[in-house]
Design a protein around this nucleic acid. Structure first.
Lengths: 207, 207
DNA sequence: TTCGTCCGGTGATTTGGGTCACAGCCCAGG
DNA sequence: CCTGGGCTGTGACCCAAATCACCGGACGAA
């Protein structure tokens, strides 16, 4: 695929450089792209699909932070890249995905030479930071029912489909909750006429 | 005070520029430095004191994210500054504090011209991002007792004193909990010999 | 077709923590 | 010296959510 469509704002010189130096990789849905503690060697740009960025703790709990979509980049990989550090998060392909991996050592030069890259990096930081803020808001101030609604809203936004093809268990994992709780809350939402429940699928009622 | 001591890594040219263009301001403990929704006109560097960065929600709840200390900068103000956006957080002086405010319009040039500034900004992003990550970890995975211990640990680290001069109510506010809960958990910690409780003061037992 | 496994539904019970009520305290200001 | 307001301690109660137990239904592999 032609990756340039996803990044129309990049300058010709920058595009050339990326074309020459970056590596394109494919991942299948469910593949782990980056794991906690792993050393970062590249900055990741998303071309296609959907990447889930989440945290994992020692006793198996996990917690979804946000999704990355085509045209976006992983802020963590940028930060770590520039400082040659290790990642503190997990990244997993939620759908089959294509990404562009730009070697760490190019970052400094790109920042200096290409205004459009600099802007892109700043914008990425801001975007992810804001998303983290709303994550904090949610867990700090909201109850599970509101968090679930937020989750569903975000899911349809990001996946671009009207239905969630996902099991209750997976939602529970993403919210670091348990299946029974999610099932019961979904049932209540169904009673309120917000969704219709099927096996492995939640249909959103547009109203 | 001589602010340059806090930022020994800055280049001479950068120091000169800041000296010429930045404004130094004092705040008393309790003063609000920045509030949610406010338009950002300057990047904030901390010279002295301690700044508390927290989130506030509509129904009066608040939630401490992290502290800024001398030598650190507010990542939010940088991000917003570069993009001329509004702040999504609150900043309050926890102690009497001195800060340096660098006008937004200088940011781009400083990033391009001064390597040390560029490094500083990157480092700031990384630091705050990491802190936000550990905040998320705490509320997502930990119970109140562990969160309280983390709070105390961080407090003594940041304040540089062995004792917390703070009421239970203030702790409860910072953790978005309630006084009774904090009092009870502190009492348990006292029984475990971790702290000694006084009025408006918690003494840490070093062991 | 049948069996095993994943999925969802539902009740019972437990628990962490928020809320209410109230009492005793220390301390500052009159 | 007294008094009123902020701080802390504690019991009673409640609620959201986690956990446990169990069921039946759907679906895929043999």
């Amino acid at each position: 695929m032609n990756w340039k469509e996803q990044f129309p704002q990049f300058e010709p010189g920058l595009i050339e450089l990326i074309e020459k130096e970056a590596v394109q990789r494919s991942f299948n849905a469910g593949d782990i792209i980056m794991r906690t503690g792993q050393y970062i060697k590249s900055t990741v740009l998303v071309l296609e699909g959907r990447i889930k960025i989440y945290r994992e703790n020692q006793d198996g709990g996990e917690f979804l932070m946000y999704y990355l979509q085509p045209g976006q980049a992983c802020a963590v990989s940028m930060i770590c890249a520039i400082q040659s550090g290790t990642s503190e998060i997990m990244a997993m392909a939620e759908d089959d995905s294509e990404v562009l991996m730009i070697p760490v050592h190019l970052m400094d030069d790109m920042m200096n030479q290409y205004k459009s890259w600099y802007q892109f990096v700043i914008q990425t930081y801001r975007g992810r930071f804001d998303e983290l803020l709303s994550v904090v808001d949610n867990i700090a101030f909201r109850n599970m029912d509101e968090r679930l609604e937020f989750y569903i809203k975000r899911y349809v936004e990001k996946a671009g489909k009207k239905n969630l093809e996902i099991s209750h268990q997976q939602i529970a994992d993403d919210l670091n909750s348990s299946r029974e709780v999610i099932s019961r809350l979904l049932k209540k939402m169904e009673q309120r006429g917000l969704v219709k429940l099927h096996r492995n699928m939640i249909e959103l009622i547009s109203s």
